[in-house]
């Protein structure tokens, strides 16, 4: 842990060397959730509620999603850019150091500018918390908290999966954006609006639903039967990280250096 904080400190210093660029990216990150959400908002204002979800409910799930996405991105970005590490042979160096690979890859990147995204999505989230029109009992607060935590774990897991992929393909692959960005884009709305079998993928394979409409149904009181299952759903997202880490270990064992 101490080592990781050390990594982060060094990376922050190196970012601050390019101050103008840092702030440009920061502003871009601030604007990003706004344009995305403006799309959601305009659709609702034109067509009424989407799939029975009101504006505060949509804002709540959208805010929670982007909070967890930006946190996961800030910390686990090293996995997102991992294919570079494999291609350049940088990973060889990681392997010979007497520390865990996961820690070192995590520590290879820390993107503070994701704070921009975090700030705007946090604002949306807080606004939604007060406008949901529900009584915030203790159990709901706990579920809401774990909803965000589950999101962080799911997205970190997805980043790791994408990185594992590059053990086999070497080069970075545009296809992987389908996995990372696609999951995020789909989950912009509570997934049950799609009314399609596709959401089963997002419940059981990449369980982003556990940070999305499942806990949301509990919080808003829309879940009628088996309430406790909805309340416990964020656990699914947290557990998801385990098979991802396992696959990572398999990948590391499979790794052959590119030799450059």
């Amino acid at each position: 842990m101490k080592l990781y904080l050390n990594y982060v400190r060094i990376l922050l210093r190196s970012h601050m060397q390019y101050r103008a660029s840092f702030f440009m990216v920061l502003i871009g990150q601030l604007i990003y959730p706004i344009t995305l959400f403006a799309g959601v908002y305009l659709l609702v204002s034109r067509f009424g509620e989407i799939g029975g979800w009101s504006i505060p409910e949509l804002t709540f799930s959208f805010g929670a999603l982007l909070i967890s996405y930006s946190i996961a991105e800030a910390f686990a970005r090293g996995f997102d850019l991992f294919s570079n590490m494999v291609r350049t042979g940088e990973f060889d160096r990681v392997l010979v150091r007497p520390r865990g690979t996961i820690l070192q890859v995590l520590g290879s990147r820390f993107e503070l500018n994701r704070i921009g995204k975090l700030v705007t999505s946090l604002c949306m989230y807080i606004w939604a918390v007060f406008n949901l029109g529900i009584v915030w009992s203790l159990d709901k607060i706990v579920v809401a908290f774990f909803m965000v935590v589950a999101g962080i774990f799911v997205f970190s897991g997805v980043f790791i999966l994408a990185a594992v992929w590059s053990f086999w393909t070497i080069s970075g692959n545009e296809l992987l954006n389908i996995l990372t960005d696609g999951t995020r884009e789909m989950a912009r709305f509570p997934l049950d609006v799609y009314k399609s079998k596709i959401i089963l993928i997002f419940i059981f394979i990449i369980p982003v639903a556990s940070a999305n409409f499942l806990p949301l149904m509990y919080i808003t009181g829309k879940a009628v039967e088996n309430q406790f299952l909805y309340a416990l759903s964020p656990m699914l997202g947290i557990v998801f990280i385990l098979p991802c880490l396992l696959l990572w270990q398999v990948g590391v064992r499979h790794y052959k250096s590119t030799g450059s």
């Binding site: 660029s21 440009m24 990216v25 871009g28 990003y32 344009t35 305009l42 659709l43």
Partner: peptide, 24 residues
């Protein structure tokens, strides 16, 4: 002027994409 690809790209890109009707 800016010497930063990421900075100007994300700023211009996000806004103009929305204005072009590519978000909705």
């Amino acid at each position: 002027r800016t010497l930063s690809a990421v900075g100007s790209l994300t700023l211009f890109g996000l806004v103009s994409e929305f204005l072009a009707g590519m978000v909705i």
